[in-house]
Design a protein around this nucleic acid. Structure first.
Lengths: 160, 160
DNA sequence: TATTGTTATACTCTATAACTATA
DNA sequence: TATAGTTATAGAGTATAACAATA
């Protein structure tokens, strides 16, 4: 571990965009997203939102739209539209919840499961390729940092 | 440093969106961006693109649009429009380059400099608040990881 | 012919809110 | 009254390409 006394991520008198952490993070996220779009959008004709909903339904088996909103980071309109498109393409099915008929219970179809099984290994391989540049220790730090920063970022957003 | 043999960022048989690195990174980046928009958009009526261009011109003193495209991550249309709006608001000025009259040389105006000087301390304070949760060593790892991942991500995007 | 920068157009995405049906 | 989910609408942002001026 580098223990020089030069602190990481600091700033000189003049604001430098290229050293600004939110900017660097946004660039990285955008670059990765553009690469992933080439997979699920171009090859499989899924939008990012549809991919997230499909993954959520695949993972949870049966889920209410509300549950998916919590686990995908989408809002209710994005989720509603992604669900509608996935149902139209027969990748998921919707049925009423007998216990509360406002809810729609979503389930993945065999076709949806096959589609997900095609895409998941590809995007996981890309993730693995990305993370290959980091050591195990560096990955652990990154893993922990993402969670800690996420909490702080949500706090900042709430406070305005 | 944690040296248990449990590797960081791995996956079980079922694809879990919440553990997928690109997803987590995107959520973090989006949350931070939404917080920052509250500053430069709501308080100062600047879009993210305008903020980037303003920062670039502030940093480099005089710059061609082409230089700014490289240093802001924007494409030429986004840059052209952000430049036009900033000029209309008198935050930057444009003049012809005598050496190549296709170029426009951009410079920040006193009003632009004042605006930037108002915003920069606020967003830097937010960045500092975010990074406070990390130790110096963790920040160094993160700093290095962002650069390494950015290179890999660009490689992936190029390869398709 | 190639490059800088602008404009046009259509398309997609987003934000706000109104709306339906349940509870 | 409140919630789950849908629909409507307008505004913002994006992508593609055509374009003018210059090299």
């Amino acid at each position: 571990m580098d223990s020089s006394d030069k602190p990481a991520i600091t700033h000189p008198a003049v604001f430098q965009l290229a050293k600004f952490f939110p900017y660097r993070l946004n660039r990285l996220s955008a670059t990765i997203s553009e690469g992933l779009q080439q997979v699920y959008a171009q090859r499989f004709e899924l939008s990012r939102d549809e991919w997230r909903i499909l993954s959520g339904v695949n993972e949870h088996g049966r889920a209410k739209t509300t549950d998916l909103i919590a686990s995908t980071g989408l809002d209710k309109m994005q989720a509603s539209r992604a669900v509608a498109r996935l149902e139209e393409a027969s990748y998921i099915s919707r049925e009423a919840d007998p216990e509360d008929r406002r809810n729609r219970i979503l389930a993945i179809t065999p076709a949806g499961r096959r589609l997900h099984a095609q895409i998941a290994p590809i995007v996981l391989a890309r993730e693995a390729f990305l993370l290959e540049v980091l050591s195990d220790d560096e990955r652990r730090v990154l893993d922990k940092a993402l969670d800690a920063l996420q909490q702080r970022a949500e706090q900042l957003r709430r406070q305005g």
